[in-house]
Computed example of a mutant assay.
Amino acid sequence: MNCWFEGHVQGVGFRYQTVSVAKGFEVTGNVRNLIDGRVLLYAEGAEAEVREFQAEVAFELQDYIRETEIQTDSGARACQSFRIEQ
């Protein structure tokens, strides 16, 4: 799943909070700032787990998010952990 968060999502600890939330879920992937001011969350795992993880991130950081775009995909897992990417 790719999820783009738009709003006041950079410079507020958004990526670090997302990593903290990920510790409570069985997901792998990464989160990174984009040049256009959005944050991209990429998560792999069981579909229900990934959706719950995304929903929890959106809930915990709702004060910073103005818009969310989600794109789901299936395939082999490529990540072994969840981390911040530069």
Rank of each mutant, 00 (worst) to 15 (best):
N2D: 15
T72F: 13
T28L: 02
A76H: 05
Q80F: 13
G45S: 03
E47R: 14
E56T: 07
L61T: 06
V57Y: 00
E69M: 07
E67T: 14
V50M: 08
D63W: 07
C79E: 15
I65S: 11
R15K: 05
V19K: 04
A46W: 02
D36R: 01
L34V: 00
V50G: 04
R66D: 15
S74C: 05
A78E: 15
K23S: 12
G37F: 01
S74D: 07
L61E: 07
V19R: 10
Q62V: 01
D63R: 12
D63E: 14
N30I: 05
V12F: 04
D36V: 05
E47W: 00
V9P: 06
A48V: 01
T72K: 15
F53H: 07
T72Q: 15
A22H: 10
G37K: 08
C79K: 14
Q71L: 13
V31L: 07
N30F: 12
D73Q: 15
V19M: 02
R66P: 09
M1H: 11
A46Y: 09
S81N: 14
G7N: 05
V12P: 08
S20D: 05
R51C: 13
S20I: 03
V27M: 10
L40A: 06
E6R: 11
T72H: 15
Q80R: 13
G45R: 01
Y64P: 00
F14L: 02
V31G: 07
F82A: 08
C79M: 15
S20F: 02
Q17M: 02
A22D: 06
F82D: 12
Q62N: 12
N30A: 04
R77L: 15
G11C: 01
Q54K: 06
E52A: 06
F14E: 02
G29H: 05
R32K: 14
D73P: 03
N33K: 07
F82Q: 10
R77T: 11
R77N: 14
A78F: 11
V12R: 02
E60W: 13
E6L: 00
E49S: 05
V27W: 03
E67L: 14
E47A: 11
E56G: 01
A46R: 10
G13A: 08
C79Q: 13
V39H: 11
G45T: 03
E56F: 00
A43C: 03
T68R: 11
V31E: 08
C3K: 03
E6S: 09
E69K: 12
V21A: 03
V31Q: 08
Q86M: 09
E60T: 13
I70S: 03
T28M: 03
F5C: 10
F5L: 12
R38E: 11
D63I: 10
E67Y: 14
V27K: 08
E67V: 06
Q86C: 02
V27A: 04
F14V: 04
G7A: 11
D73A: 15
F5H: 12
A55N: 09
F5I: 04
T18Q: 04
R32P: 00
Y42I: 06
F14R: 05
